[in-house]
């Protein structure tokens, strides 16, 4: 038996002695924020972002990302300092007091890592609180952009940094539908269900593509053969999410998401890494 894990990215799911799981459609949480910590370490000091506040929801997805970020940002010789570091329950729907407490620590950059509901509440409370920070990063605006845009509005997203997923990259896949084709098919099938087209819809599609390709390459449906078939795609299969790449323990380390920033019109531009950037980061009062 082999577990095809579409988007369960918690680092604890993967270990060398567990050959029963492979992560298919997004990177494991411990490497997902790689571009984020690189951006903070390489560009932060130049942009005046030296004091970092880290606020995260305490679940496997965002908790692991927070741990990875903390480790990178606290490494010896780091040019930045973490001045606020708090976890909150994933059910948190009120961030007003937390925003006030963050402001008391006087950070330059606030990194908030939560699920959709967390990010909506955080960004709405930030708008209503009257507090301003030089820069704010939130996780889900780039993942479920439609949902965030509807709930927070482009005025609430203006200047916010986030991950840029396949939604904003329009990569050319070697297998499966293009972004436009998938969006059209999704709207046709699920347009009236109240579920917005977002990155999770793309992840579902990519999962299907990887499983299809794996089955095409597998000698049998036995666990070892299926795992071998999935691993045979590693580093080769170009999906809508980017290059599919597995680590030895089954964790996905490809399909990394660049860092982007929303402009005042609600457009998301890539600002890091430099080779993918199509805009310069704007630091101001968010």
């Amino acid at each position: 038996m082999l577990l095809f894990d579409p988007t369960g990215t918690g680092a604890a799911f993967f270990s060398k002695d567990n050959p029963y799981i492979v992560l298919l459609a997004d990177p494991v949480s411990s490497v997902w924020p790689r571009y984020l910590w690189e951006f903070v370490l390489n560009e932060g000091p130049k942009l005046g972002l030296k004091r970092i506040a880290l606020l995260y929801a305490t679940n496997d997805f965002t908790g692991t990302q927070a741990n990875a970020l903390r480790t990178a940002l606290k490494a010896p010789g780091s040019p930045v300092e973490i001045v606020f570091d708090e976890g909150v329950p994933t059910s948190t729907s009120n961030y007003t007091v937390l925003i006030d407490n963050i402001a008391a620590a006087n950070p330059d950059l606030v990194i908030e890592l939560g699920y959709t509901g967390n990010d909506i509440a955080f960004l709405r409370n930030l708008q209503d609180s009257g507090q301003k920070f030089k820069a704010v990063f939130a996780l889900y605006p780039g993942i479920e952009t439609n949902v965030l845009m509807k709930n927070v509005d482009k005025s609430g997203l203006a200047g916010i940094f986030t991950y840029v997923t396949a939604l904003g990259l329009d990569l050319k896949p070697e297998a499966g539908l293009s972004l436009a084709e998938l969006r059209e098919a999704y709207e046709k099938a699920y347009g009236n269900t109240g579920v917005e087209f977002g990155w999770n819809a793309i992840a579902g599609h990519v999962t299907g593509i990887v499983i299809t390709e794996a089955l095409a390459h597998a000698d049998t449906l036995a666990q070892e053969d299926l795992r071998k078939a999935v691993f045979s795609l590693s580093g080769k299969l170009k999906t809508l999410d980017g290059t599919f790449e597995l680590r030895e323990d089954g964790a996905q380390i490809g399909e990394l998401t660049p860092i982007g920033q929303f402009d005042a019109e609600g457009n998301l531009r890539v600002v890091y890494p430099p080779e993918l950037a199509n805009a310069k980061p704007v630091i101001g009062q968010t």
């Binding site: 007003t96 959709t116 209503d128 009257g130 709930n151 269900t193 109240g194 579920v195």
Partner: peptide, 30 residues
């Protein structure tokens, strides 16, 4: 009927921005 996605109302539909109450800033919508 509604789907699982999050829904909300814009703060401006009630009152946007902060207000000072008991010497502290809280959202007007609150």
């Amino acid at each position: 009927a509604f789907g699982p996605s999050e829904r909300s109302l814009p703060a401006r539909s009630l009152a946007a921005g902060p207000i000072v109450l008991l010497g502290q800033s809280v959202p007007k919508s609150w």
